[in-house]
Design a protein around this nucleic acid. Structure first.
Length: 604
RNA sequence: GGCCCCGUAGCUCAGUGGAUAGAGCAACAGCCUUCUAAGCUGUGGGUCGCACGUUCGAGUCGUGCCGGGGUCACCA
């Protein structure tokens, strides 16, 4: 149980006895005490002043006295300033907390059994990444992937059963564009023959298509066509549309080429996924799901949830929900984007018996996801309320927006390479790991470069759009992944020097700790806050909470490190205490960074 | 234009309705015979977009405006 809840329940008990009146946790708002005042936790008394009709000073002193009288071992002092009662936790319970939990790598995590915490195990699906197969991943995908993976891990850490999935958009006109361009310009080249990563290879032909298309449109316009005509009549576009029809009619040649080119892309994606540590329990392919929703459209028509227009197209009227009318099926009976989303959403819940389904998708699709949820609700599916759109803002560059047409897209593989190269440069400059083998160095650069990248993209509240500053992102100082990793590596260095045998050999000693220095107190109190921080992150599914927390912990430890020696502590008792403090900090940094998908090096 | 999101230090970002609003970067001044200086300490820097309201108390809640973005496709 956290100190906050102990204080609350103690206060309720004490005051209930005194005033013969019911109180709840809401009456006792507990905050951390501001550094300029003495104390660790603060009770805000204003709410009570009203109900009890006493001055804050009188009330504060009364309550403070009760705390000291009833829990002398827990609190050492109190003071009342204006409407605030500041309580100081005694050193002993802090030392005890450290002694009991310093080796607990899962400290603060909710337990997933119903008895101890009341937390029910939920089955949750997290869909993320969800790329197209006509071009490589870019910076926006990285924000999506890091977010999705991290949210899944945070939910797991909070005791949920999580299924990570991805829906691959592997069909449609844009895929055909790459295919046509390859047929026209590749001369049979393959990723292997030109030594290029498959997703980039295919992406290049997508670009070639657009160049050729533009050229043809210009030519047609010069010979007198309007822009609209030209865009329709361009031969390469006509070929592409024909190919899409062939694909839908399962023309074997087209299907074969499609399979081949997609397999190139998947190979490229897998390489990137593996490198950044993304993984999926199941992958959905749009080519398998794009017909799914039609049955439900029929059902919706029967239930009068949907309606037909004269041209046979099917619509839903969501004007009452402020969402307007929305097309659900084309007049010719073919699916649109949302048709298959309806089908897949239902399939997910029915096949996997989910409690929750989370979609990690950019905020440009907020409207779409709202409509989807509303349609599911109107179809009478009770799980509509258990669909969550975890939306995130666009990643912008300091130079402006990323636009594929203007070639200002930041390629995922490029930026990862750049981060890893920067890690290499810094590491070499510092020259602290010259004894590492080539393999060990390579691994270290990956850990640091990816750590910097992930931390940079996850530390910002997902819903806000963020600005990617290439210069700042490759600076490994300050509020960065490498800073936190560095703190961890330093602690490992202490443990190597002092030796962990010493720790276990003297484990009985620290129970006699009677006095803590301010920074020692502060660190223990901060570690104690871990429970709340990570639980909140779980409820809010927000990795930025974890990132900010872990950074603050590292910062506090670094201050501690600079002021107090562990190995050369004043006495054995102190040495033991500080060793435990260090071990616990390292454990929590490690588990916190793990939730962000960031690994931790023993040396750097 | 309708709906949604954002607006906090020069820049990038934190900030469960509580006390004198915090970090990092950048700037300036210090600290490496001592557990890793990718670090630590200090200084300067703010009309929390504006206004009104709710409240004992508002960066935080409400309304209106201003500024930025997204979306309102028989694209996905």
């Amino acid at each position: 149980m956290s100190f906050t809840s102990i204080i609350q329940s103690s206060a309720i008990k004490s005051l209930s006895e005194l005033y013969q009146q019911e109180f709840s946790t809401k009456d006792f708002q507990v905050n951390e005490t501001k550094p300029e005042f003495k104390g660790d936790y603060t009770i805000v008394l204003f709410a009570l002043v009203k109900t009890l009709k006493k001055s804050p000073e009188v009330l504060g002193n009364e309550l403070g006295g009760l705390f000291l009288k009833n829990y002398p071992e827990l609190f050492s002092s109190y003071n009342v300033i204006k409407g605030f009662l500041n309580l100081e936790i005694a050193d002993k319970p802090l030392a005890t907390l450290l002694l009991e939990h310093y080796e607990d790598e899962k400290f603060g995590r909710k337990k997933s059994d119903n008895f101890s915490s009341g937390k029910k195990v939920e089955k949750v699906m997290v869909e993320y990444a969800s790329p197209n197969t006509n071009k490589p991943l870019h910076l926006g995908h990285l924000r999506n992937i890091f977010l999705g993976w991290s949210v899944a891990e945070i939910l797991k850490a909070n005791g949920d059963e999580v299924i990570k999935t991805s829906i691959v958009n592997d069909r449609g006109i844009h895929i055909c564009k790459s295919m046509i361009a390859w047929q026209l310009f590749a001369n049979g080249a393959t990723p292997d023959s030109v030594h290029e990563k498959g997703d980039h290879f295919v992406g290049d032909y997508y670009v070639k298509f657009n160049e050729e298309y533009k050229k043809e449109v210009n030519e047609l316009m010069q010979s007198g066509s309007t822009k609209e005509q030209a865009e329709k009549e361009a031969p390469i576009m006509k070929k592409t549309q024909k190919m899409l029809l062939d694909w839908e009619q399962e023309n074997p040649e087209v299907r074969e080429l499609w399979k081949t080119m997609n397999s190139w892309v998947y190979k490229g994606f897998d390489e990137t996924y593996k490198r950044i540590g993304a993984d999926f329990d199941h992958t959905f392919y749009e080519s398998n799901t794009y017909l799914l929703g039609k049955d439900f459209v029929r059902e919706g028509l029967q239930k009068n949830v949907l309606f037909k227009k004269e041209d046979n197209s099917v619509w839903i009227d969501l004007s009452a929900e402020n969402l307007d009318e929305k097309l659900v099926l084309r007049g010719d009976g073919t699916s649109v984007y949302i048709t298959q989303d309806i089908g897949l959403a239902i399939q997910k819940f029915e096949e996997y018996h989910l409690d929750k389904s989370i979609y990690v998708i950019g905020d440009e699709q907020l409207y779409h996801m709202k409509v989807l949820k509303e349609i599911i609700r109107k179809l009478g599916m009770s799980f509509a309320d258990n669909m969550f759109h975890l939306s995130y803002g666009m990643v912008e560059l300091t130079t402006g927006k990323m636009k594929s047409r203007e070639g200002t897209v930041v390629d995922a593989d490029d930026i990862i390479n750049e981060m890893v190269a920067t890690a290499e440069k810094h590491t070499k400059e510092l020259g602290k790991v010259n004894d590492f083998s080539a393999d060990e160095l390579r691994e270290l650069y990956e850990i640091l470069g990816l750590g910097a990248m992930k931390f940079y993209l996850l530390r910002v509240d997902p819903k806000k759009r963020m600005i990617f500053n290439p210069e700042e992102s490759i600076d490994f100082h300050g509020f960065t992944g490498p800073f936190v990793q560095y703190t961890y590596a330093r602690i490992q260095s202490i443990l190597r020097k002092v030796g962990s045998e010493e720790l276990s050999a003297n484990s009985h000693q620290s129970s006699s700790i009677s006095h803590l220095l301010p920074l020692e107190r502060q660190l223990i109190l901060f570690l104690e806050k871990y429970a709340a921080a990570v639980s909140d992150a779980g409820d809010e599914m927000n990795p930025s909470v974890v990132a900010n927390y872990v950074f603050n912990l590292a910062k506090l430890y670094n201050s501690f490190y600079a002021e107090h020696s562990v190995a050369n502590a004043e006495n054995d008792e102190k040495k033991n205490l500080r060793l435990r403090l260090s071990v616990m900090t390292a454990n929590i940094i490690k588990s916190g960074l793990h939730l962000l998908g960031i690994k931790v090096p023993d040396r750097m």
